[in-house]
Structure formats: C-alpha cells, structure tokens
Simulated scan of single mutants.
Amino acid sequence: MESTPAPGENIAVLRKARGLGQAKLARLAGISVSYLTKIENGIRPTTPPLAAAVAKTLHVPVQRIYGQPFLGLSEQADLLNELRGAVRRYTLPREDVPDPAVLAADVDKAMRLRAETKYLELLELLPRLLGQVTATALSSSGEAGAWTQVSDVYGCAYAAAHRLAQSDLADMIVSRQVWAAQQTWNPEAEVVAAWNEAGTYQSAGQYGDGLAIVERAVSRYEQVAGADTPARALSLGSLHLRGIVLASRHKDSDATADHLRKAKRHAERIPNDVLKHNLTFGQENTALYELAAHMELGKPDKAAEMAGPLIRTPPATLTPNRLGRMYIDVARVRLETRDYAGAEQALEKAFEVAPQMAEVHPMVREVVRVLFVLHQRARPKLMEMAKKTGLSG
C-alpha cells in the first residue's frame, strides 16, 4: 500500500541511525516500550504529541517524523512558490491599488475559501491579493482598516501554508501578519496574529512556548479591550481555544481545564458560532475543542461520549473547516475505542465536507494507515481514501 514511509517507520530509521534502542528512546520520550513498538509497527497512530516528543528526543523537526510535506500535484508546488515570493516581497508589492469594492470582495472570497478548505483555489488568489492589499495599505497613510485587510489575508495564507505542511513558509507568514497587525491599532487584529503565532509553536510541538504566546496575548488584550461585548468574547474565547489544544497536548490537565472553563464562559455571549477575521468561536466550536482535549489527555471514552451527539446532529453553524476537523477527531476517537467501522465512516464524512483538508491532514493518513494494518484492506471506500491521501497508488 505504502507510497511513502509511515511515521513509525521514520521513527525506527531515525532511532537506529542515532544508535538508540527502543527502550532508551521510549524512556527519553516518556512512553512505554510496548507503545513505541506498536507505533513503529504501524498498529497505533502517531499522534501530534507523540510525534513532538519523539522529534525532540531525536533532534529533528516534527515534519520529519510524519514525512511531510505531502505536495502531490506539481501545480500545488508552483502555487506555493508564488505565494512564497509574494510573502518575501512584503514591502515591495508589484500590484497596483485596485478599486476598494473589488478588493473587499476578493478579501471576503479568500476568507470564504479558507473556511471551505479550498486550499488550491486559495493559493491561486493569494499572491496577487497580498500585493494588492499591501499596496493599498502602504498608500493609505496608516488607515487602520486597510492594514486589517492585510492582516486578514495573511491569516488566510497562514492557514494554507500550515495545512499543506509548509512550516517555514507558515513561520514567515506569521511574522508578516504580526507586522501588519501592529499597523492597525486594532486589538482584534493583534489577537488573530497571536493565535497564528501560537499555532506555529503548536505545529513544532513546542506547546509550552505556544501557551506563553496565548497568555501574553490574553493579558495584552484585556488591558486595552473595552466593555464585555461579543467582539471581546470572540477574541478572548478564541485565544482560550488555542490554549486548550496547547495545554492538552502538553499533558497539563489543570491548564486545559482553566482554558476550557474560560472559553465556555466567553461562549455564553455567542450562542451561535460566528466567523470573524478567520476566527470561529461559539458554544459549538468550543465543544469540538473539548472533545479533542479529552483525547489528548488520554480519555477516549469521555471523548466518545461527547462524539455521539455531535455526529447525530452535526453543528449547524460551523464552516467546513471546523466540521472536517470534527470528523477527523471523531475518527481518531473511534479508532482508539476500537470502533473501526465507525472510524472509517467518520473519515468518509471528513472527505465529504472538507476534501482538500482530509487529503493532507496527518491524522487522516494515520487512521487510514492503521485501519489497513488491522486487515481492513478489502473495504473499497478505505482503499479510495488511501489513494486520495497518497498512501497507495
């Protein structure tokens, strides 16, 4: 089946190249030898925290464990190179200032494509759009709204680079977004930049540093924010959602509970989830983060209990980006609880609502890979998903 080495295979190769036995690597990474053996043999998925712990021990990037990036189409690689060039020229846009109404429509389109996980279409739009919003902002004599548009478009670019496993490009984009947000005098724009900055630490497995970014952003925002408005709830609540992920992957149950409690409190102000400046927040999205945190903290039964109602009645106000991630997390929950048919069904839903995300998401690949190892090869839908993710030809 394999067209690329499995993460477990990569771990075994790197471990042997460094002269480490399984017992020593397991001890250094804080896991059991039997768990490491199952990872290397492909019968347990390599989760983000596990990949981060092993990568740190082996002194390699997390992406080296997963074998990313999974570029696939040459068209995709070409589009990423164009985006990289546009980001590099962040103070030297080649584009002219367009009509404001046309520009606003294109910015809205980019944010919609991001929410719908249509990354290839987004990549086609971004290089030109980045140049146009930047040219507009540079000619606006510091007008805050123009710079907010720049920040929003960089947020879309970050989503594409992150999801396509371009960690160096994602880091560069975030630095540009922070720069743009600082020109806005808009605290909400700075929150979005901090959200993505913490995301770069999350991708690198540096969860403690990511939490520090979140905590600093919360403190700064609380110092300048006004009354208890929905906008304030969205900004602070979104930061706490990022904190839930980072703390749970850091295996800090107290910090996870604290961020979850605060996120729920802010979500009471927003009963129907809203999407603004590329941040989604409300009670439904908060529930998805809680489900994922249970998995990271080793509580799959509790996660499965939450997953049932979510699957029976999928959140109606969430975008494909969030729904796709929900189904991926549910597939992981069901795999852990040995509901293999249910895991496959959840993956099918992920491909249905967010196909471009599902094709490149590392946990989709891991769940599909483990299902194959567990002798599910005869299932045609599983074979189809394996082909879409590049696991079979």
Rank of each mutant, 00 (worst) to 15 (best):
Gly8Thr: 06
Ala55Arg: 05
Ala343Asn: 09
Glu284Cys: 07
Ala23Lys: 01
Arg88Thr: 15
Leu71Ser: 09
Asp329Pro: 03
Ala26Glu: 01
Asp171Met: 13
Tyr90Trp: 15
Leu25Gln: 03
Asp339Ile: 06
Leu36Cys: 06
Leu130Asp: 01
Leu73Ile: 07
Met357Asn: 02
Leu241Met: 10
Asp252Phe: 07
Arg369Lys: 03
Ala225Pro: 05
Leu211Arg: 13
Ala307Gln: 00
Val150Gly: 12
Gln68Lys: 10
Ala343Trp: 06
Leu323Val: 05
Gly237Leu: 07
Met172Gln: 15
Trp185Ala: 13
Pro230Val: 01
Tyr90Gly: 12
Ala331Cys: 04
His277Ser: 15
Val174His: 11
Thr148Lys: 13
Asp329Arg: 07
Thr91Asn: 15
Asp301Met: 11
Gln177Pro: 15
Ala227Ile: 08
Gly308Phe: 12
Gln183Pro: 08
Tyr154Pro: 13
Val102Thr: 11
Tyr207Ala: 08
Pro271Ser: 10
Asp171His: 12
Ala204Phe: 05
Leu80Phe: 02
Leu275Ser: 14
Tyr289Leu: 11
Gln166Ala: 12
Gly42Tyr: 06
Gln223Gly: 15
Asp152Lys: 14
Lys388Asp: 08
Ala144Gly: 12
Lys264Ser: 15
Val218Ser: 08
Gly72Leu: 07
Gly342Cys: 02
Gln223Pro: 13
Leu260Ile: 00
Val62His: 01
Arg332Tyr: 10
Leu297Met: 00
Pro300Val: 05
Gly237Phe: 03
Val333Gln: 08
Gly390Pro: 00
Arg322Leu: 11
Pro380Val: 06
Leu36Gln: 01
Thr229Glu: 06
Asp228Asn: 13
Thr319Asp: 07
Cys156Met: 02
Pro127Trp: 02
Asn272Ser: 15
Met306Arg: 12
Asp152His: 12
Glu296Gln: 01
Ala105Val: 09
Pro48Gly: 02
His250Phe: 07
Pro5Ile: 03
Thr46Leu: 04
Ser248Ile: 00
Glu9Phe: 08
Ala193Val: 08
Pro69Val: 00
Leu50Thr: 14
Glu284Val: 10
Ala292Pro: 06
Glu116Arg: 01
Ala267His: 00
Thr46Lys: 06
Val87Gly: 11
Thr229Gly: 08
Leu36His: 00
Ala378Tyr: 11
Leu103Tyr: 05
Asp339Leu: 09
Thr57Asn: 11
Pro45Thr: 09
Ile43Trp: 09
Lys109His: 10
Gly67Glu: 04
Lys109Ile: 01
Ala307Pro: 07
Ala26Pro: 00
Ser32Cys: 03
Glu190Leu: 15
